[in-house]
């Protein structure tokens, strides 16, 4: 334990990680039940946080209940560590926990994310905390919780399949590009949060612990490690992820999710990795490799 962490929780009037211990216990109990029923949304007594609802309060409460003084925290929004809300949340945890932070996916023990799963594969024991705006995958079909609760209870997910099929009839394909619903452990239909469907396959059989927090809607759910995550599809319209013709303009990756950057007002654009740590690491590796080659060839010459 870092000595300053102990000081933080005793001296500034706020408890370590902001939440009081009773609230943490309540959330911790919810997390254990969430892991025991993969994909099922556990209602929890979500509290108001000092960040606005819709801005990651669910993720923050989950992280606050999980995090300890020895953790190393990474916070990303849209895959990037430097986006405003990621910076704000990271600063929050530095203030209330004095916890070590990192931009490196590999070094982090807890990663809180909004809208992306990191490109670097996660390991056993790592905890990925998703911020969830709307935990109910059936909400757009049926706004009433009294109804959706029954649909989950009896695994009546036909309406969801019908909705996706209407896309096929109308557009010739499933027109869902993010927040793409998946069936977890063969039983519960789950919103993966608004990650691009590109990231859905990363959830499947992932060695890490994936926790989801929806603060405003007061729901917690989870995908345990090594758990099946099946994105909904049809035999004649199988699930597929986004692909790009080119590669990242900065690191050359052909396997990562790319963001479009508009570079002038004449329609010029380029594509770069949305995962900044992944991209920076690859650029640094390429630079190091090039330096090594230059050095060798310099010596040879």
């Amino acid at each position: 334990m870092s000595p300053t962490a102990a000081l933080v929780h005793k001296d500034d009037g706020y408890n370590f990680a902001y939440l009081d211990e009773q609230t943490k216990r309540m959330i911790r109990r919810s997390l254990l039940k969430a892991l025991s029923i993969p994909g099922y949304q556990v209602p929890f007594g979500g509290r108001e946080m000092p960040l606005a609802y819709g801005w990651g309060t669910g993720g923050i409460q989950v992280t606050a209940s999980v995090i300890g003084p020895d953790d190393v925290l990474k916070v990303i929004d849209q895959g990037a560590d430097d986006t405003t809300n990621a910076v704000s949340i990271r600063r929050f945890f530095q203030t209330v926990c004095d916890v070590a932070v990192t931009e490196s996916t590999a070094e982090a023990t807890v990663v809180q994310t909004r809208h992306r799963v990191p490109e670097t594969p996660l390991k056993e024991g790592q905890v990925l905390v998703y911020q969830v705006p709307q935990p109910e995958p059936l909400k757009k079909i049926e706004p009433r919780e009294t109804e959706t609760r029954k649909m989950h209870a009896y695994a009546e997910y036909g309406a969801m399949q019908v909705t996706l099929y209407e896309d096929v009839a109308h557009f010739g394909r499933i027109a869902k590009t993010y927040d793409y619903p998946a069936v977890i452990n063969g039983r519960h239909l789950m919103s993966p949060s608004p990650i691009p469907k590109f990231d859905n396959p990363k959830m499947e059989m992932n060695p890490a612990i994936q926790l989801f927090g929806a603060g405003r809607e007061k729901r917690i759910y989870a995908v345990p490690p090594y758990t099946s995550v099946r994105s909904l599809d049809f035999d004649d319209h199988p699930f597929e992820v986004q692909t790009w013709k080119g590669s990242c303009a900065l690191c050359g990756s052909t396997t990562s999710y790319l963001d479009e950057v508009i570079t002038d007002d004449r329609g010029s654009r380029m594509f770069v990795c949305s995962d900044t740590d992944f991209c920076n690491t690859r650029q640094a590796e390429a630079a190091a490799a090039k330096a090594a080659v230059d050095k060798v060839s310099g010596e040879e010459a």
């Binding site: 108001e48 606005a52 609802y53 819709g54 801005w55 309060t57 929004d77 849209q78 895959g79 986006t83 405003t84 809300n85 909004r114 809208h115 992306r116 705006p133 590009t177 993010y178 927040d179 608004p194 990650i195 691009p196 469907k197 590109f198 405003r216 986004q242 999710y257 790319l258 963001d259 479009e260 949305s274």
Partner: peptide, 22 residues
């Protein structure tokens, strides 16, 4: 507090999802 948070959260970056829709 809930409504204000959620309505205003749409000003946060959504470019990953927007890219997917684009």
């Amino acid at each position: 507090v809930e409504g204000n948070g959620f309505v205003t959260h749409f000003k946060l970056p959504h470019y990953v999802d927007f890219q997917a829709e684009l």
